[in-house]
Amino acid sequence: MRIFVFTSGAAAKKLFSKVKGKAGAVEFMAPGALKTFLNDMPCDAIAYIDLSSLKPAEIPKTLKLLYSLENLCWGVLDPKGAVKDPAEIFHRGGADYAGKELAKAPLNPARIEAAAKFRNIEKPAEAKTKPLPSYLPSGRDWREVREGKEYTFCMMFIELDNQAAFRKNASDKQINTVTHTFHDFVQKAVAAMNGRVWMWMDFCGLVLIPFDGERCEAVLACLRMMMNRVIISVEDCDLGTLLSYRIVLHVGNTVYRVRGDTGSIISDSINSIFHLGQKYARPGQFVLTENVEPFIPSGVRDLFKGEGVFEGRMIYRLAFPK
């Protein structure tokens, strides 16, 4: 495990004097480098921030930055007792807190390991053998994806609502225009997150987005698509009607084959997302499965309400505050 300590004082260095060899590698960095570092922080690392190295005015700002982190492991060194409510550190995603008393003697390596485990960060050797249960991350883009091999993708199901009304009131040519326009919009919208329309059937489609096991940008992209429905209807699709669509997000495994050659694929995840989209989700809803839930950015987490279990998975639905 790599331990990064952001401090400008010698006292903090003594705190980690017992951490050697297998217990982990400690690197000391200047507090000013924290924000930049966090952008590329390794997922198997833990970062400690020495609050006594910061000016009093910088402490709330730094804590706010730490609270906003997704899936990163961090702890706080507080030898001066600047934090009034240490429990809040843990409530808002922190893994460790070393206060006035604890910071007097070097930290026990077992404690740091326990802190990392508390936030599900494991030693690299362990991380390699079991990254995430049964996940085969496909990466951040398509470079490593090979046809015929199984990978974990973020899967997005999207379907236009009101199909019956469309079929009843529109000519074949008009339906064709609607489905083509909607398909082209989806293709353009998902391209920004490396997504590819993988299957398409008239009014609905399945998009594959490479998944690296660390983040799922599709959550925010889909949230925007739901918020901007009016703008999309007028500017992107311009079909003279307010579009209503449902979206389902899921992270799961499938064998990858090129579009058009997917008929023989048997995948629980694909079955599941189609069932969710066509049997569970209602018009205009955005739902996601428990596999995606850990990747919802904390700032919008409260917008997703647990809705119960469907086909063995907990389902969350987007609900804007009234």
């Binding site: 700002k61 906003s68 925007r224 918020m227 901007n228 009016v230 703008i231 007028v234 500017e235």
Partner: peptide, 20 residues
């Protein structure tokens, strides 16, 4: 008008994700 609506939507997400 669409520009104004979009600014409002983006600000909603900004406030939740990265506002200082």
């Amino acid at each position: 008008t669409l520009c104004a609506m979009e600014i409002l939507h983006d600000l909603f997400l900004y406030n939740r994700l990265s506002c200082r």
